[in-house]
């Protein structure tokens, strides 16, 4: 069916639900460094833990597009006494990556970038061992393995709210939605930032704990190696449905303070200022 450029007002609405259905892959957590984590946090978020959690998953049934691969690194923060997750950086690949990235950045404020090849983000399984890898522009950024069985450190179960098949868990996340507008000189600048709070619900079909080994690296464009890995805490192979509920603006931090913490996770070096202004 051919589409048309001009949509009617009803057709022009974004799909309101954000369900990442049948999300399957590797989840992992490691102990990093409070100082490093605090340094990447935009105001007013405050560091709540030295832990970093991440995942590499295939999202097979997204409510807003085709299937895609996604990798994320996130940290635990607090805002006004509430503890939640701040996803620092996402990379996506596959057919649905483009829409998931546009929607993630424009609608939600997620720091997302796209990898050029679908297999830049991969998960391979061999018996009870899974290995996930993330590459972008030829550089390896994340290489994580998991041997299913037990967590490296049993305490990590509480971090994940001890999921099991059939269980639902929830949590709060914080994002920074940015508004880029031309200034009086005709140059695009970030004039406003909305701090977004979002509740999400995981409905688990599978959660198989395992022992992880996390390797992180940095490239010219993606500083995933900035987080030192001081302890492999554990992770899991999981299949779940993730529903992101409504988004609420809970603050308007100063763009000058926030933007420097976001740019490298949204743009490559080539897009950033070179030389004297």
């Amino acid at each position: 069916m051919k589409t048309k450029i001009v949509l009617n007002s009803e057709e022009a609405l974004l799909e309101p639900s954000a369900i990442m259905g049948n999300e399957e892959g590797i989840y992992f957590t490691f102990m990093s460094d409070l100082g490093v984590i605090a340094n990447v946090l935009p105001e007013p978020l405050e560091v709540a833990s030295p832990l970093v959690s991440g995942y590499i998953v295939e999202i097979k049934n997204a409510s807003f597009g085709e299937r895609y691969m996604e990798a994320m690194l996130g940290v635990y923060v607090k805002l006004n006494g509430k503890v939640g997750m701040y996803p620092v950086t996402f990379l996506l690949s596959g057919p649905g990556a483009e829409m998931a990235t546009y929607l993630g950045r424009e609608k939600t404020g997620l720091s997302k970038k796209i990898c050029e090849n679908e297999d830049d983000i991969s998960i391979k399984r061999d018996g009870d061992v899974l290995r996930g890898m993330v590459k972008r522009k030829g550089a390896l950024l994340l290489d994580v393995s998991i041997k299913l069985g037990e967590y490296n450190n049993p305490a990590v179960g509480d971090i994940y709210n001890n999921p099991t098949a059939g269980k639902k868990t929830g949590g709060t996340s914080f994002y920074f939605h940015t508004v880029l507008e031309p200034d009086e000189n005709g140059k695009a600048i970030y004039k406003k930032v909305n701090l977004i709070s979002n509740e999400a619900e995981y409905a688990y079909h599978k959660w198989e704990p395992g022992k992880v080994s996390v390797r992180l690296y940095s490239s010219e464009n993606d500083a995933w190696g900035e987080f030192p890995v001081f302890e492999n805490m554990g992770g899991a192979y999981s299949v779940n449905d993730l529903e992101m509920k409504d988004l609420y603006i809970v603050g308007n931090p100063d763009p000058k303070k926030v933007i420097p913490k976001l740019m490298s996770t949204r743009f490559d070096k080539v897009a950033l200022l070179k030389g004297e202004r």
Partner: peptide, 22 residues
Amino acid sequence: MPGHRLLEIRSDAVIVADNADI
């Protein structure tokens, strides 16, 4: 890099194995 054991030392690299024997 915790969770990695040394397998071999070469003149220009080391080979390690992780918790999953990778």
